[in-house]
Amino acid sequence: MTARVVVLDYGSGNVRSGVRALQHVGATVELTSDRAAALAADGLFVPGVGNFHACMAGLRAAGGPLVIETRLAGGRPVLGVCVGMQVMFDGSDEPSESPQEGLGEWPGTVARLKADVVPHMGWSTVRAAEGSALFAGVEDERFYFVHSYAVADWTMEPPTGHFAALAPRVTWATHGNDFVAAVENGPLAATQFHPEKSGEAGLTLLENWVRSL
């Protein structure tokens, strides 16, 4: 059965490349802000372009936080990309006249990269987490980044004992400082880079996610 994916349309900018990439890897894709459709889909793709706080404001206006929380509570897959990943954390140091809290799915604050050249724009390798499902077959490939802010400190304590297998898989990259490039945490996954703009490697990553739905 073909996986049905909703790309959440909340005013974050041009998301057509994400729609096309997901269609290319075999998903049936709908670009919409309709909450019922977003809840019913096999997978929810949360894009994000621009300022963290503006994206959060747009998400809230579209009812996105409740949709994401409801899906995750039911074990329904969500994939966040770029600022769509950043909003999953507690908040951001990015300047804004109207500061917004993040969704708080993961602890941590999005901070400016400590690099001589910012933004980080271009192709970079990642250090894929051991056992990663997203990066299966593309662990050594490069991915396309466009960002000035990222999460540098992963502070979530991994579960132990019977729940150790559920520990989040965290993938890292470096631009000036190490930062979180991707996370796989049960139904919630996210990438700081743009898989839809990362050529064949990015398409493989998206295909891995779509096949898991």
Rank of each mutant, 00 (worst) to 15 (best):
A128G: 03
L103T: 11
S148E: 08
S92C: 13
G50A: 05
A133H: 14
G137K: 06
K197Q: 11
W106M: 13
A182C: 09
E207N: 08
W106T: 10
D116A: 15
R211N: 14
N14V: 02
L59D: 02
G48Q: 00
A21W: 06
M121W: 11
A38D: 13
V15N: 06
V118R: 04
V151F: 02
Y149S: 00
Y10P: 01
P119W: 12
A128W: 03
S17M: 06
G63D: 05
T32D: 09
V49L: 14
V15E: 00
E157F: 00
M88W: 13
P168L: 07
S92W: 14
G104D: 13
E139C: 01
T109A: 12
G176R: 09
V15H: 04
G48L: 02
V146F: 05
V146C: 06
V210K: 10
V19P: 06
F179E: 07
A128Q: 04
A41L: 09
M85I: 06
R4Y: 00
P77H: 12
T32S: 15
A173E: 02
V183L: 07
T191N: 01
K197M: 10
M1K: 05
H162Y: 01
H24T: 12
T155Q: 08
A129R: 13
L39I: 13
G64C: 11
A165C: 09
L22S: 05
D116G: 13
G104N: 10
G104A: 13
G64Y: 11
R112L: 15
T191H: 03
V138A: 06
V19F: 03
A136F: 08
R60H: 07
Y10T: 00
V67Y: 11
Q100L: 10
P77L: 12
T171L: 12
S212W: 09
G75D: 14
L22E: 09
D153W: 01
L203S: 09
A128Y: 04
S148K: 12
P158H: 07
F163S: 07
A62C: 08
A164V: 13
P159H: 03
L31R: 08
T2A: 11
H24A: 15
M1F: 01
S12E: 00
D9Q: 08
E157G: 02
A37W: 05
K197P: 09
G161H: 04
L113F: 04
L22K: 06
G108V: 05
A152H: 15
H162R: 14
P187Q: 08
Q100A: 12
V5Q: 01
A54P: 00
V210A: 11
R169L: 12
V46G: 03
T109L: 15
L166K: 08
S132Q: 05
G176H: 11
G18T: 02
A190E: 05
T32V: 09
F193D: 10
Y149Q: 00
M85D: 05
L66P: 00
E141W: 05
V126S: 04
V49Q: 10
G13C: 04
E97L: 11
A62I: 06
S12M: 15
A190D: 10
